[in-house]
Design a binder for these strands. Structure first.
Lengths: 210, 210
DNA sequence: AGATTATCTTGTCATCGACAAGATTGGAGC
DNA sequence: GCTCCAATCTTGTCGATGACAAGATAATCT
């Protein structure tokens, strides 16, 4: 029995990773309701019970996929912010662009990450990954309004995140710009982003009106 | 065979409505993944195949529930706007409050209405109900900035909706203000709302900067 | 090499959505 | 008042699913 790599071994070797990859693809194809463990197993070419040795339940696999999603989201935000230079306001816009780009490229995964169902299978790793993305955003907002009070900063963190998240969420669901071209849609997104940053900077530069 | 009302008739009589009511409750209790037709049937005290005569599939029932949700959302927005007097800016805030209140009271239903899955079972009635809510919002924004250009109006409609929707969505998922009291959370929501309205009014009152 | 553990298999169970076929009911037309 | 028909609800079935059990195989440790 030569243990040649081409010979199909009894052990898969990287089944856990293969299931995550297959599951992620299946998720985008069929949506959350069409997501099944057995189909993941089929795509990884293993028996229907094999996944149980790597994931205690279907929710565990979803949690792992969502965690991976948060890591990629963080990476996308960081990369786009870096491309935006040193100006804090420009970097904030850039992070928003990265956020939206990730969501647009992985719509179902994005919905899963921010789904109410996610609370059902929350994992320490998932919570940590989500927190990392939050802190990245928080720091970008605070850097844009260094002179603002702690309270104003906090509220602008809320507001900025809500604007970006809300916009891309509505687009993904088809509520906003359904008949727009991708190009026009991106312009609308950028307009929303600059309206947001402008409001944040203005609020952060003033002592707090009313 | 007296057809007394207390006697359990073979025909349910209002099974369609009963299924919608039971389904809506089940949805909030178990989430979208825990939603089953058979459980709805059990709660309506009919056999597992009875729903088929009123809803062609499980998605049809979900569509009906979502449609009802849009009607209630519209009603909540209208009612809260009316309570806010005549000032367009105040009315815009009010509509946002109504929007958030509905979402907070029906978190899973709200997620269903704005879920990507909803596109899978879109019904004419559902699309119409969603469009009604959109127009209500659109008109409120445009009333607040009557002198703005059509383009600015359009972008502020995007922006305003995104802010409100994003904020409440993040709260519902537990990403924002997880450890806040309901009272503190409402204050954060109001702060986000006023930041939004202020930005809208400012953008709408100027010719358009940059 | 032998033993132990991890990994993967087949087999089973209750439950699900959907469909088929039969039973019951309510009404329309006579 | 009666008959017949369509709507409604029933039981029964099918393939598919998630989870579990028990056994087979591979990898690793001693």
């Amino acid at each position: 029995m030569a243990r040649v790599k081409t010979a199909k071994p009894y052990h898969h070797g990287e089944l856990r990773e293969a299931l995550v990859v297959a599951g992620r693809k299946l998720l985008e194809e069929k949506g959350l309701r069409g997501f099944t463990l057995r189909e993941c197993a089929r795509r990884a070419a293993v028996s229907h019970a094999a996944p149980a040795h790597h994931f205690a339940s279907i929710d565990d696999l979803l949690a792992e996929i969502a965690t991976l999603g948060y890591h990629e989201l963080t990476a996308a935000m960081t990369a786009e912010a870096r491309r935006s230079g040193q100006d804090p306001a420009a970097r904030l816009v850039g992070q928003g662009v990265g956020y939206m780009a990730f969501a647009a490229a992985n719509p179902v995964l994005f919905q899963l990450m921010f789904s109410r169902e996610a609370n059902r299978f929350e994992t320490p790793a998932l919570a940590q990954a989500a927190k990392s993305a939050y802190h990245l955003h928080r720091e970008a907002v605070e850097a844009a309004i260094p002179r603002a009070s702690a309270e104003v900063k906090e509220r602008m963190v809320d507001f900025a995140w809500a604007s970006v998240h809300g916009f891309i969420t509505l687009v993904l669901e088809g509520q906003l710009g359904e008949k727009d071209s991708p190009r026009a849609l991106k312009a609308r997104g950028l307009a929303a982003l600059s309206a947001m940053v402008e409001a944040v900077v203005r609020a952060g530069g003033e002592p707090l009106s009313a």
